[in-house]
Design a protein around this nucleic acid. Structure first.
Lengths: 157, 157
DNA sequence: TATTGTTATACTCTATAACTATA
DNA sequence: TATAGTTATAGAGTATAACAATA
């Protein structure tokens, strides 16, 4: 029973320490804290950043396609995209061939904004999570990619 | 460019596929969907289950200690615990030696409730995540435990 | 009829600050 | 003065359903 520096009582978590859902949640919380340390001053949330970033990588992407790729609900996507539109970062365009749809692209200001924050994002990502080595971090990311079907290594030859 | 069964357009995610925060979020979403498939009919959320489960494992645990162990905010813990109290599953007791504090324990009904759902939880956890083998799942859990400081293997002899 | 996106409502969880009652 | 918990409010993100426009 090695006492921590702050002598926090030890809590018996039982099976929870083997629960993938629980571990993913705790790990995500720590990771998000790091994100806000890097991006907090820009009013950016992880979800908002990923949306803007992916629009930049995929000009004229359909809103629904983007929502499914990022596992964001359509209702939430509508609100987030509108907020970006109001800030002048994203353009919405209704294509001729299917006028139900909406195509999203960055404005010039949006591209500029993403470019400026990309360096910070890269630096944030390059910083290793506490307690993990570079090798372990790579391995963890690889397993998560495989689990989520985003694998670009191992699955595809 | 192997087309999926539903021919969903491919989205270029760029650096996001290497981002631990992003991957953790996607993985957690999939894991939570599984949880709700198993527990949805009981009105249980992952957070509520973990709170009840850990109280069961740690009778008379202090509310603040529990909140820190599970990374739940004190304000949210207050509401969740009260809901359990209203349902007759949890007892709150103010200890003599520090009357600011609150100690939490399961009632008989609470113990019964946890016992009944523990089997379902174990079955839920035993089911492998899609796309991962048992070995990969173990490895993933091990890396997450290490990253979150919950390691009981490798760190402690 | 089915699909794309929108609106509206409710809920979970987080963030924050002000507050109480103790210590 | 600091700590344990409470209350209140705001926000992100999710779940759901009803809806309009279009296919």
């Amino acid at each position: 029973m090695a006492a921590g520096v702050e002598a926090e009582p030890e809590v018996e978590l039982g099976e929870l320490t083997a629960s993938l859902g629980f571990l993913l949640r705790i790990a995500q919380i720590e990771r998000f804290e790091r994100f806000f340390e890097s991006f907090g001053d820009s009013g950016l949330t992880p979800g908002a950043w990923s949306i803007l970033f992916v629009i930049g990588r995929n000009p004229a992407i359909r809103q629904g396609v983007l929502a499914r790729a990022l596992h964001v609900k359509p209702a939430h996507m509508t609100k987030t995209v509108r907020a970006f539109e109001d800030r002048g970062l994203v353009e919405r365009r209704v294509p001729q061939d299917d006028r139900r749809a909406v195509e999203l692209s960055l404005t010039a200001a949006g591209r500029d904004w993403v470019d400026r924050h990309s360096a910070r994002f890269s630096a944030h990502e390059a910083a290793l999570p506490a307690r993990l080595t570079a090798k372990e971090t790579d391995q963890l990311a690889r397993l998560l990619r495989k689990m989520t079907g985003l694998a670009t290594d191992g699955t595809q030859p």
